[in-house]
C-alpha cells in the first residue's frame, strides 16, 4: 500500500495495517498453508501405509509378517520425536551415499571420516547451486516422509486392532454363504472395520494436527519459525520497531490450533454417527433408535 512507504510517520490503525501486511508477514500467513498442506498430504499416505502395515502383519508370508510386526511395534516405547529427529537425517544421508556411489565412483575416500560426513559435491542433496525454493521443498519433503512413516505405524496399529475387533462370527457367516476369503474381506470385514477404527483414526488425526509444530525442529520455515522470527524484539534499525511480541504470536498459534482441533472434533462426530449406523454395536443401536 502506498501510504506504507514511510512507516515511521504513520501510526494507529494504518501502522497496524502496514505492519501486518509486510512481505515477512505474508510468508508467515503462507506458512499456515504449509501446515495444512502437510496435514492433508500426510493423512492419505498414513492411511495407505496403515493398511499396508496391518495387512503385512496379518500376512501368511513370513518375511512380510515380520516386516509388518517390526513396523507396527517400532513406535511403541520410543518417543516419536526421536523418530522425527532420526528419520530425516538418516534418509538425507542415505540418499547422499547412494548418489555418491552413482555420481562419483572415482572418489575412493571413506564417507564417515571420524566426525565428518564427506560426500562429493555432485552427490549433495539438494545441489548447493540449486535455488532456495528447492532447498525448502526438499526440507518439506523429508518432513513429509518422516511424518508418513511414523503416523503410518500408528495407523497400522489402529487398523490392525479394528480388523481384530470385527466379531468372528460375522466373518464365519460370510464364509458360510460361500464367499471367498477375498469377498469376505471386501464385503464383510472391511465395511465393519471402519466403525471400530474410527475412534482411533480420529484420535490419530488430532495427534497429527498437534504434531505439526515439529516441522520447526526439522528446519522447515513453519508457523513456529515465523512466530519466533517476527515476534522477537525489533530495534529502531528495523522499519517496524517493536518490543518482544513473541507471546502474542504464540497466542495466535494457540488459537489457530484450538480452532483446528475444535472443527475436526465436530466433523468426526458426524462421521461417527455415519459409520456406526446399522452396526451391531451399542453406538449403532443408539443411532438406529435416534432415527439417524
Amino acid at each position: 500500500m502506498e501510504f506504507c512507504a514511510d512507516p515511521a510517520t504513520i501510526e494507529g490503525a494504518k501502522w497496524w495495517l502496514c505492519y501486518l501486511t509486510t512481505p515477512k508477514h505474508q510468508q508467515f500467513y503462507f506458512s499456515f498453508l504449509t501446515v495444512l498442506a502437510l496435514i492433508l498430504l500426510v493423512a492419505p499416505i498414513t492411511l495407505i501405509l496403515g493398511f499396508g502395515g496391518a495387512l503385512a502383519r496379518r500376512s501368511r508370508f513370513y518375511p512380510l509378517k515380520l516386516f509388518g510386526q517390526i513396523y507396527t511395534s517400532m513406535v511403541r516405547g520410543v518417543p516419536d520425536i526421536v523418530f522425527f529427529m532420526f528419520v530425516p537425517i538418516a534418509m538425507d544421508q542415505g540418499l547422499e551415499i547412494i548418489r555418491h556411489w552413482i555420481n562419483c565412483p572415482d572418489v575412493t575416500g571413506a564417507i564417515y571420516q571420524g566426525n565428518d560426513f564427506v560426500v562429493c559435491t555432485a552427490a549433495k542433496l539438494p545441489l548447493s547451486t540449486s535455488p532456495q525454493w528447492v532447498h525448502e521443498t526438499y526440507g518439506f519433503f523429508l518432513a513429509l516422509v518422516a511424518f508418513s512413516i511414523v503416523f503410518g505405524a500408528f495407523a497400522a496399529n489402529t487398523v490392525d486392532g479394528a480388523l481384530n475387533a470385527v466379531p468372528r462370527n460375522q466373518l464365519e457367516t460370510g464364509r458360510a454363504y460361500g464367499m471367498t476369503s477375498g469377498q469376505v474381506f471386501r464385503r464383510v470385514h472391511l465395511p465393519q472395520m471402519w466403525g471400530y477404527a474410527l475412534p482411533g483414526l480420529s484420535n490419530l488425526w488430532m495427534i497429527l494436527i498437534k504434531a505439526t509444530p515439529l516441522l520447526f525442529l526439522l528446519g522447515v520455515e513453519d508457523v513456529v519459525y515465523w512466530a519466533r522470527e517476527l515476534g522477537s524484539s525489533k530495534t529502531s534499525i528495523f522499519t517496524y520497531p517493536h518490543p518482544d511480541w513473541r507471546i502474542w504470536y504464540f497466542a495466535a498459534l494457540l488459537v489457530f490450533y484450538l480452532l483446528l482441533t475444535w472443527v475436526s472434533e465436530k466433523i468426526f462426530a458426524r462421521f461417527r454417527t455415519r459409520f456406526t449406523r446399522g452396526q451391531a454395536s451399542s453406538a449403532g443401536k443408539i443411532a438406529i433408535e435416534a432415527g439417524q
Binding site: 494436527i209 498437534k210 504434531a211 505439526t212 509444530p213 515439529l214 520447526f216 513456529v224 512466530a227 519466533r228 515476534g231 518482544d244 513473541r246 507471546i247 504464540f250 497466542a251 498459534l253 494457540l254 490450533y257 484450538l258 482441533t261 475444535w262
Partner: peptide, 18 residues
C-alpha cells in the same frame, strides 16, 4: 488437550519471561 504441547511450551516460556 486441543493445542500442541510444543506450542504450550513456547507460550509458557514467553509468558514466564515477561
Amino acid at each position: 488437550r486441543g493445542s500442541p504441547l510444543f506450542i504450550q511450551f513456547f507460550f509458557g516460556y514467553e509468558l514466564f519471561v515477561i
